[in-house]
Simulated assay, not measured.
Amino acid sequence: MTICSRTFVAESEVINRFCFISNQSKSLVTPKASEAQSITLIAQDTSVSPTSVQRFINQYCESMPKKYDYLPKHLSFYEFKYLKGRMAFEYINAKTGTILGILPSRLSRDIKDHFLSRYSYAQRCAVEIITIDMNAGYEKLIKKLFPKAKIIIDRFHLVQLINRSMNKLRISIMNDFRTSNSVDQKKYHRLKKHWKLPLKNVLDLSFPF
Rank of each mutant, 00 (worst) to 15 (best):
H74W: 10
E62G: 03
L158Y: 02
S34N: 12
Q44W: 04
S117P: 03
S165N: 08
E139I: 11
C61S: 09
T131W: 01
V159C: 10
E35Y: 04
Q37K: 15
S105K: 09
H114G: 00
L103F: 01
Y60F: 12
R155K: 15
A136L: 14
Y70C: 11
K67A: 10
L83D: 14
N93P: 00
F115K: 01
V29C: 08
L28F: 08
F156E: 05
I39E: 05
Q160P: 04
A149S: 14
M64G: 00
S47D: 07
E79D: 09
L71E: 07
Y91N: 09
F56W: 15
Q123R: 02
Y82C: 09
P50M: 00
V48W: 00
A33I: 04
Y119A: 11
V159A: 13
L116V: 13
T96M: 05
F56N: 00
P147Y: 02
R55W: 01
V53H: 03
R106I: 05
R118D: 07
Q160R: 15
K81S: 12
F156A: 08
K150C: 11
I99M: 11
A43H: 05
S63T: 10
Y82V: 11
P72C: 00
K67V: 11
D110Q: 09
S120F: 06
S25N: 10
K143R: 13
M166A: 12
I57F: 03
S25D: 07
V127L: 07
L161K: 09
L107H: 10
F115C: 11
I132A: 01
M134H: 09
Y70V: 03
E139G: 04
A136N: 13
K66I: 05
K66H: 14
A122W: 04
L116T: 08
I130P: 03
F80D: 11
L83M: 09
Q54R: 13
A88I: 01
T40D: 12
A36V: 10
Q44C: 06
Q160D: 10
R164W: 00
K26E: 12
R124G: 03
R55T: 03
S76V: 06
L71I: 08
S120A: 06
Y78M: 10
D45I: 08
R109N: 13
F80E: 07
L145F: 06
E139R: 14
V159Q: 14
T46P: 07
R155L: 04
I102A: 02
S38D: 05
T98H: 01
S38K: 05
E128F: 06
D133Q: 13
Y119E: 10
K32G: 03
D113N: 14
